[in-house]
């Protein structure tokens, strides 16, 4: 794919004043984010803080209520149809629930990543060109699952499925990789493998990565830069290096030992949108230092 980003050569993602409302719920409030080519950024926050919504806007899966979203030099909300699909094909997306088609083989799932460069609907392995099949097998090899190529996707473990999903994203030969809580559904060991894999692939290919996470430890050890969200607002944006867990936790109005509690709350607030409201009592109970602590946004 082409490498040119006409407006600002280095900035591949430029979000400004992004607000998104779902009915009466505000999912994102005046959010801003600039990411340069090759950066590895973590979006940190609880469920309902707006991380997923922000990521979805970057790929044009959601349309903003107001604000600007420029990705690879194009204003995403203005794109439609073919041009939107062309942009999406340059951006890989990895989901929390993997989102593989359970009844298809692993190989065919990977191949669906190449649909954008093909014309017309495809169903069945025979409908894909051999060249792509070889590429897909190569990506499967890269994520260590070549031997599973012809198994049904739903026979794999969660960690394996996520690696297949990564291979699917690689099929797009993307410039940007977006990952929405890629390890939230995985056990610690698989989590570590998947996160390591994403980072390695990103380094190798010079990919820009924006990955949302809710585990502070993981975010600090993995990302180059941490962007914290809370109730739809960006409350933190700083290099990961030198940042301590305590500092982050303080921003979230909690003590360092609260990780477990964080996760407990997380579990309770399953629904991303409903959670924004349901968390309201929590919000009022907590002291309010963090808004002030936000580096750039004080309202």
């Amino acid at each position: 794919m082409n490498e040119t980003t006409p407006a600002a050569p280095d900035v591949v993602i430029d979000v400004e004043g992004l607000t998104k409302e779902f009915g009466s719920t505000v999912a994102l409030r005046d959010a801003a984010l600039r990411v340069e080519r090759g950066e590895i950024v973590v979006l940190l926050g609880l469920s309902g803080s707006g991380k997923s919504t922000l990521l979805r806007h970057l790929d044009g899966l959601d349309t903003p209520t107001s604000g600007s979203v420029r990705v690879l030099g194009q204003e995403v909300p203005r794109l439609q149809g073919r041009r939107l699909r062309a942009l999406r094909s340059r951006i890989g997306f990895v989901f929390q629930q993997f989102e593989l088609v359970p009844s298809l083989t692993v190989l065919e799932n990977v191949l669906t990543g190449a649909l954008a460069e093909l014309r017309g609907p495809r169903l069945g392995l025979w409908s894909y060109p051999k060249r792509l099949k070889l590429t897909a097998l190569g990506h499967l090899d890269r994520v260590g699952l070549l031997d599973r190529a012809y198994q049904r996707a739903d026979t794999l473990s969660g960690g394996q499925q996520q690696r297949v999903a990564i291979a699917r994203a690689l099929m797009q030969d993307p410039e940007i990789l977006l990952a929405d809580e890629p390890v939230a559904s995985l056990d610690p060991e698989s989590s570590e493998q998947v996160m390591a894999l994403i980072r390695e692939i990103a380094m190798d290919a010079g990919l820009t990565v924006v990955c949302s996470l809710h585990q502070v430890d993981l975010a600090l050890s993995w990302g180059d830069r941490i962007v914290g969200l809370r109730h739809g607002e960006v409350v933190l944006d700083t290099p990961a290096e030198g940042l301590s867990k305590a500092e982050v936790m303080e921003i979230y109005g909690r003590v360092a030992t609260a990780t477990a509690e964080l996760e407990a709350i997380e579990r309770e607030l399953v629904d991303e949108l409903g959670a924004a409201d349901a968390a309201a009592p929590e919000h009022s109970a907590a002291p309010e230092p963090l808004v002030a602590a936000g580096p750039n946004r004080t309202r």
């Binding site: 790929d59 899966l61 939107l84 699909r85 062309a86 942009l87 999406r88 094909s89 340059r90 951006i91 890989g92 997306f93 989901f95 989102e99 593989l100 088609v101 298809l104 065919e108 669906t112 990543g113 649909l115 954008a116 093909l118 017309g120 609907p121 495809r122 169903l123 999903a165 699917r168 994203a169 099929m171 797009q172």
Partner: peptide, 17 residues
Amino acid sequence: RALRATGASRSQVYASA
């Protein structure tokens, strides 16, 4: 949604997902 995110068209999403 995952296929739409790869840039697949409506008919491709229908056939593949």
